[in-house]
Amino acid sequence: MIKAGPLENSAAATARPARAFKLPDQLFLHILLIAILFVMLLPFVWMVGTALKPDADATPTSLSGSEKNIGTLVSLFWPREFHFENFVKAWNGKYSPNVPDVSFFDAPFSRYFFNTIVVGVAETVGVLFTSILAAYAFARMEFWGKGLLFTFILATLAIPHEATYIPNLVIISQLGSVVSWLGTNSYAALFLPWLGSAFYIFLLRQFFMALPQELYEAAQLDGITELGYLGKIAIPLSMPAVMTVALFAFLGNWNAFLWPLIAAPNIPVVQTGLRTFVGNADVQTEWNLLMAAATIVILPIVILYFLVQRRFIEGVSRTGIK
């Protein structure tokens, strides 16, 4: 091989990543990425694997007994026997796993899903209604105190949710003493506090402001009202933003935990329902049922995610919703 001078050497070095070693480099990169991905998704594999295990393997009570070895790696993840009925047991709830004649719709998890979906739909529709109207006003209309009010809205962005829980609990219970179906332990209590969202207003306003002014003027010449313009032109053109808001409002409700726990303990939603599977120090936790319940809770969101993953990811990368 001819020994290259320093100049050629550096030129070769710059050319190298582009050509000669391209394939092995990429191959190595993908192996590395797959390995990282595998570690990241391991909890999900473990979750589903444990959910399918027989009781004896998932909650090894045979401590003093037969099995004095740590098993193989495969046995950790791959169930010895597949027990799909664990999902049915989990659906029937922590306290009635072995009751065979619980009908599907009477089962605790049916109630959790029902409650969550009712609240989620109400919250999503409500927050879309308030946010779209307010965002449109801030984007298109002129009024006194606009700047001041918008500053106020942005300022509420800085308030952490936790800080509002106790005062909101008091407010809700006071509302309940006036109108009973608005108080604690009502469906309304679960979504009322989240109907005004500074972030969604801000997000939608950005979209409405990006619509061309000429469109608005042309529509006005045709004698269209503000509401007509909003409903027939602005919303259809801002559908990506509207869908993102709807998606994240519903997802936020699905994953809500602390507020349902304190505001409406009598209306169990999926997340608080899942908690009933976790035993305290004196109650045994059945791992396979717990994991089956966790799978049930996660599954709808995962399906939704794979259906509209582009919207999820774009929503996050464009807006930074957390």
């Binding site: 999900f44 899942l274 717990l290 809770v297 969101i301």
Partner: peptide
């Protein structure tokens, strides 16, 4: 959901 993965 964080509750579900936290239990895992």
């Amino acid at each position: 959901s964080l509750v579900a993965v936290a239990t895992v």
